[in-house]
Amino acid sequence: MCGIVGLFVKNPALQSKLGAHLETMLIGMSERGPDSAGIAVYHSPVAQGRSKLTLFNADDAYPWRKLAGDLGAGLSVETDVSQKGNHALLTAEASESKVIEWLHANRPDVRIMGYGKLMEVYKDMGLPGEVAKKYGLQKMSGTHAIGHTRMATESAVTTEHSHPFTPAPDMCLVHNGSLSNHNNLRKWLRKQGQTFDTDNDSEVAARYFAYRLSEGASLNEALEAGLTDLDGFFTFTMGTKDGFAVVRDGIACKPAVLAENDDWVAMASEFRSLAYLPNIEKAKIWEPAPATVYTWSLH
């Protein structure tokens, strides 16, 4: 079982409260996922020509400064790093592909949680409220954010298997459900040049959508294609650099509630997570229909 939350801010005046609201929403999903939690927040874009990566190593005393120094020397670029728990936020004056290539070659012990120009991703064990606190979610501003709380029923509680999955720059996906054709799809995606970090079915969905988007599909088209190609149970919530999407399978047995007003769009597995949003009393609240794609864009 797990809980999903997502918040997409339409009114710029509310951007400073994004993290605070998402934290409340995430805590609302504690009973659906007390084992671990993950968040992806779209905020503080880096300057042109720079890239931003969230990195992970289980050791709290991992030498992140040395990593940043070595990376800077290796690529002859300026870098900056700050530690948050067992994660580090790294920015570099280089393309993300160059940084990733260097990390794979020189720091195989570091896992890349997410990358791009503005998305930051943190996943950790513990109650959602504790995880949110540890990574300072409350103070994060931005345009949109997605969270996931997990109750492990079939595999170990590790950060590796935690959502959100981040298959492409500034793209993340959270999933409640299970896919039944993920092995075939994984095989097919590998043939299309996609690589996988885990054996997780949700990662297959994430890479499937990343592949469709990389082939030029719009967010809407990618999700529509997924309704045909993905077999199984799912409620997905997805973030891209400027978009936010929700889709459920044709049977729609994995819960989802959407709410929207002039200021924001919010998604959660249960209403409990939406109950404290500003002006929720007057928001439009509905259950997303089966096999129907819902998308919002900043532009």
Binding site: G28, E270, F271, R272, L274, A275, Y276, I280, E281
Partner: peptide
């Protein structure tokens, strides 16, 4: 009530319960 689950369940008397706000499962 803030979307609480299992609110006003298992009632057996002819009373009236009004719930103000959105409620859960």
């Amino acid at each position: 009530v803030h979307g609480e689950h299992a609110c006003a369940v298992g009632l057996t008397k002819p009373i009236e319960v009004q719930i103000d706000g959105h409620i859960g499962y």
